[in-house]
Amino acid sequence: MRIYRISGLTFILFILVFLAILIVLFILFLPLFIIIFLIILIIILSFIFKKKIKNFIRNLRKKKIKIEYIDSKGDISIHFPKRIPIENEEANSNIINIDENLKPFILYLKKKGLEIKEDGYYFKGYKVYPIYKKSYPLNEIIKLEYPEDIDAVILGLKGEVYEPKFLYLIPKEFLKNRMSLDEIKRFKIDL
């Protein structure tokens, strides 16, 4: 059995060769590591921002407007997609201080019989406060925030803001800040 001793100049040469091999391998595999790192970073960021990206793309699709210029008469024609309701300026002028997102919901209710007066909104004899929720909550409890000077809340659920699938007219006597879907179902309006 032989015993090898690395000492002195041989030891230094061995370390230098080992370091040189490590540096060459690092330089060769550096682009591969950078590509793998970038791919992992893109995947992580896509999971984080997936919902924001979908909402951004959905909003771009909703707001797409096609404008055509016709030379012969100088007319301009504007084509709106089917999803964007075309609103009348006179109808919008009557809407009392309400959130911008609820204006299409109020215009929908106006078609169904909502009356707009100076002191508020009236629907089927009740002074109402409109609330719209895009979807059912996971725990099936809906949080309702409303002013005290109303007689009822009109709640739109699911569908689009300008055409909800379900409407509920909940009188003030039965209103709570948090209501379950079972409590709300008995106030459904069939229109």
Rank of each mutant, 00 (worst) to 15 (best):
R61T: 13
I43Y: 13
P85K: 01
K103E: 10
P164Y: 09
K64R: 13
V161N: 12
Y146V: 02
F166T: 11
F166V: 05
D71C: 02
I98S: 11
R2T: 14
E89L: 13
L41I: 13
N97W: 11
A20Y: 10
I3E: 14
I78P: 07
F14R: 00
L30R: 12
Y129N: 00
L157E: 07
K172N: 02
R61L: 15
A152D: 08
E90C: 05
Y4N: 08
I184P: 02
K66V: 14
I39A: 11
S93N: 05
F187N: 01
I53S: 00
S46R: 10
I76N: 00
I21A: 10
Y129E: 01
F123E: 10
P147V: 04
D119L: 06
V17G: 01
F80T: 11
R178V: 03
E140F: 06
L157S: 08
L169A: 04
E173V: 13
M1V: 10
F174V: 05
I40A: 12
I42C: 13
L9S: 07
L167I: 11
E173M: 07
I141W: 07
D151C: 09
K110S: 14
Y146K: 01
G113W: 00
I65D: 08
I184S: 02
I70Q: 00
F123R: 03
V161T: 15
R178F: 11
I70S: 00
V161S: 15
P31N: 06
I76A: 01
F11G: 04
F11Q: 03
Y136W: 14
A91H: 03
L25P: 00
D149L: 08
D149K: 06
Y122W: 10
Y4T: 10
V161M: 12
E68A: 05
P81Q: 06
Y126A: 07
P81S: 10
Y4P: 05
K73R: 13
L107Y: 09
F47Y: 07
I6S: 03
Y4G: 03
K172A: 04
G159N: 12
E90M: 07
L45R: 12
Y168L: 02
Y126S: 10
I96F: 06
R2M: 09
H79I: 14
G125V: 13
F47N: 14
L32N: 05
